[in-house]
Design a protein around this nucleic acid. Structure first.
Lengths: 356, 356
DNA sequence: TTGTACGCGTTATCAG
DNA sequence: CTGATAACGCGTACAA
């Protein structure tokens, strides 16, 4: 049928010629305006399209329509489970609406993020979903001011009212600290990556401070917040040692990880130290995996890791929907949507049971 | 591309008019042909572009150039670690070459895969990277015959010689069975998802059979290959019980998972049964995580899971490079590239040490 | 050194 | 019911 590689792309004109009609009619056929042509022409066009494998060029369509039907999606880290579930949700909604996603991974770098956004903008995406790397982000604000529909994911930016979809940040932390107190942990500690430029981490940390003031009023919460580097296990081990030293023997602290990756990093450090969970130290954190994931690490890692859920897949669906709405109606009021979280208690914080 | 009333999109004509030159000259400026204009005009154009935030429309450019500089990437399952690392690799190489990726997730469904590919094709992607769901895939073959550059990822398709980049399948399985024999496991078993339509799983299974014939010639390898459903833990538990029953008490079998997800699923089942690893049962499998991942589950899950590495990130880089080459030179010889694998022994198969 | 005119594939407008 | 024709934004022979 077709000859080597060099197969010319069949266009609407080719179809028109072959069917003996005009481009206009073919265009009408493509757009389903069958009432504007006789059944015979319709048949004829259908046959030609079938045989030639003709597909309209969405590039030309975009040029004409001034819409690309493409959405730019910039995530901070594809390798995080949060991003994976997010991408699925976004992809699902976009596909249903005949949009396509241009995904890009900013590798936790603001510089790369900006470069990628530039690229996507010049690709004429109709809108942008950004899981940004920086709370201070003038270039993103400028973009929005120029009329680009932007919806943020999980992380807010200062000095501009972006629409945002993310998970609830404060309540789950309050819940988890209450739970730790109830289980009899001597104190709670918060292990976070650099949080200054990351609104999600920042907010969680503040919630931790707030919860500590309530449940552990005699503790100095500030000094129980440790900033760690997930590529430096030795440093994390030192932090844990410091925490244990402060509690004194016989007293068990619990660690809250700021996110999934950090929590797992801390688990690794605890295991490297040979500590017993939860008798010597408790551990818990958010669970970014989407609900349908097969590798459910909090269950698999003994004795089961206590988590609070993050509905990453649903966040993806929602953020895509919000963006599409915004594209249709840019004047709509900007909303900030927070999906609820749920505490799932597992062995890693069941201190009372472990003491029996 | 959005025109939100406030800010019309500035085109090359606008720039030309504002700078008092013709579109041609502006076009030349954009494409860096500075030798074709006087320094003054160059300055003037630069100024206008700067002030107007003009960016050439890559849609119009694509229409003209008959190249979209877009690559379609269809993965079988974004939520698998393999895909995440793969996407990173692909994205990295494409960005460096001024290409952009249209990522799509086929959710392990051939039907969805085909639909997605249709979408991508009508988007006029310059090429396609596919981690396909089916070994029998006429529609993909047809596409290739029509001249679309296609490079496969890890999974081959029958009856057509596609270029492919993936990991080595046979050798690591042979190595791992040899290792199990050496550690004194009574037998090895292979736990796989449906493998008939998946060349990677099929090949690994065959390698298992081959290795068994060599290292465990007295065992019936066929019946030691279990097909499991990762959404059915009860079924997997039954399979493990059957395996244990066959070995008899005092004899320890080891399980090889066909892929990362299956291996973790089996670990979950083993834990649910309360079995001790590796004393009562050994477990190992491939590790799809990219080298730079932070959540390194084989290390974190006690007693450490023996794996053979899959260089997912590098596979992504390579597959993108191969595709770009193919786009440049469609007549080039088709190659099948297999990246090597390495056995990493951890506690989950250290039977001798566990018996001491 | 700069500009004119046309075409890329599609759709909307208007005229039969 | 059908079809010419003009855009959409850009690149490029071909002039000047």
């Amino acid at each position: 049928m077709t000859v080597n590689g060099s197969h010319k792309n069949v266009t609407i004109s080719d179809v028109a010629r072959a069917a003996g009609v005009s481009k206009t009619t073919v265009s009408r056929y493509i757009n389903g305006k069958y009432s504007l042509m006789s059944p015979e022409t319709r048949e004829r066009i259908a046959a030609v399209i079938e045989m030639s494998h003709y597909r309209p060029s969405s590039i030309a369509q975009s040029l004409k329509a001034k819409q690309s039907y493409q959405i730019g999606v910039v995530v901070a880290d594809v390798s995080s489970p949060f991003s994976a579930a997010l991408i699925r949700g976004i992809g699902h909604v976009l596909l249903e609406n005949n949009y396509v996603a241009l995904f890009a991974d900013s590798k936790n770098s603001l510089e790369l993020e900006q470069r990628l956004i530039q690229t996507l903008v010049s690709r004429k995406v109709d809108g942008l979903i950004v899981n940004t790397n920086s709370y201070y982000n003038p270039s993103l604000i400028q973009l929005a001011c120029q009329g680009m529909p932007v919806v943020l994911c999980d992380r807010q930016v200062s000095d501009y009212n972006f629409p945002l979809v993310g998970s609830e940040q404060r309540q789950p932390i309050l819940d988890v600290v209450a739970h730790l107190k109830e289980e009899g942990f001597h104190t709670a500690a918060f292990f976070t990556e650099e949080y200054a430029a990351n609104s999600a981490r920042f907010t969680r940390r503040n919630a931790f401070l707030e919860a500590m003031a309530f449940h552990y009023p005699d503790q100095d919460a500030q000094s129980l917040s440790f900033t760690v580097d997930i590529s430096d296990q030795a440093g994390t081990i030192r932090a844990i040692e410091q925490l244990l030293g402060r509690c004194g023997s016989g007293n068990t602290p619990a660690i809250i990880g700021v996110n999934n990756v950090t929590t797992m990093h801390v688990v690794g450090a605890i295991r490297a130290m040979g500590l017993e969970i939860p008798r010597q130290v408790g551990i818990c954190g958010p669970n970014d995996w989407g609900w349908d994931e097969q590798i459910n690490w909090p269950v698999i890692v003994p004795p089961g890791i206590t988590t609070f859920t993050v509905q990453s897949y649903e966040i993806g669906c929602t953020v895509a929907q919000v963006l599409l709405q915004r594209i249709q109606n840019p004047a709509a009021e900007k909303q900030e949507i927070r999906l609820p979280s749920e505490l799932v208690v597992r062995g890693s914080t069941r201190l009372r049971a472990a003491r029996v």
